[in-house]
Measured scan of single mutants.
Amino acid sequence: MKGKVVSYLAAKKYGFIQGDDGESYFLHFSELLDKKDEGKLVKGSMVHFDPTPTPKGLAAKAISLPLE
């Protein structure tokens, strides 16, 4: 699924993505496929991810940034 980063707290390594389906997904650095892309996780960045339901809500897994 595609989505847009709505927040990312680099110090805490987490944030949120708004998916194309309108839902909010929890984003964690550990799910970023290329850790070098962390600096690109800023508000408004477009990402691809696997939407995954968890006991705490919806989460983004296997997060990647589109090729530039």
Score class of each variant (00 low, 15 high):
49 F>I: 02
50 D>C: 14
4 K>L: 11
49 F>T: 00
45 S>T: 15
27 L>I: 06
20 D>R: 05
20 D>V: 10
48 H>I: 15
48 H>G: 06
23 E>I: 11
55 P>H: 09
8 Y>D: 00
20 D>Q: 10
51 P>E: 02
29 F>I: 10
29 F>A: 11
18 Q>T: 10
18 Q>P: 02
59 A>S: 09
7 S>G: 07
62 A>I: 05
8 Y>N: 02
3 G>C: 03
3 G>K: 01
33 L>K: 11
9 L>F: 15
47 V>S: 01
50 D>Q: 15
37 D>T: 08
4 K>P: 02
48 H>S: 13
30 S>A: 09
67 L>M: 13
22 G>A: 04
41 L>I: 07
50 D>S: 15
43 K>P: 14
28 H>N: 06
38 E>S: 07
11 A>R: 12
56 K>Q: 10
6 V>H: 07
39 G>Y: 14
38 E>C: 05
41 L>A: 02
56 K>G: 07
2 K>R: 13
16 F>A: 04
35 K>R: 09
45 S>M: 15
3 G>L: 01
41 L>Q: 00
22 G>L: 05
15 G>K: 02
27 L>S: 01
59 A>M: 14
12 K>P: 03
10 A>R: 13
15 G>A: 02
58 L>I: 05
33 L>C: 10
5 V>G: 00
27 L>Y: 09
19 G>N: 03
17 I>H: 00
45 S>E: 08
37 D>K: 07
15 G>T: 02
23 E>Q: 15
2 K>C: 14
6 V>C: 12
48 H>Q: 14
63 I>T: 03
57 G>R: 04
36 K>I: 07
30 S>K: 11
44 G>M: 04
50 D>I: 15
9 L>G: 08
63 I>R: 01
49 F>W: 00
13 K>R: 12
46 M>V: 15
52 T>E: 12
33 L>N: 07
15 G>I: 03
26 F>R: 03
34 D>S: 08
64 S>P: 01
36 K>D: 12
18 Q>L: 15
1 M>L: 09
60 A>F: 00
62 A>S: 13
44 G>V: 02
67 L>W: 12
68 E>I: 12
66 P>R: 12
1 M>D: 03
65 L>N: 03
51 P>A: 10
23 E>V: 11
45 S>H: 10
10 A>T: 11
51 P>F: 08
60 A>I: 00
20 D>Y: 10
10 A>I: 12
35 K>I: 08
6 V>Q: 10
6 V>M: 12
56 K>M: 10
37 D>V: 08
13 K>L: 05
7 S>H: 11
35 K>S: 09
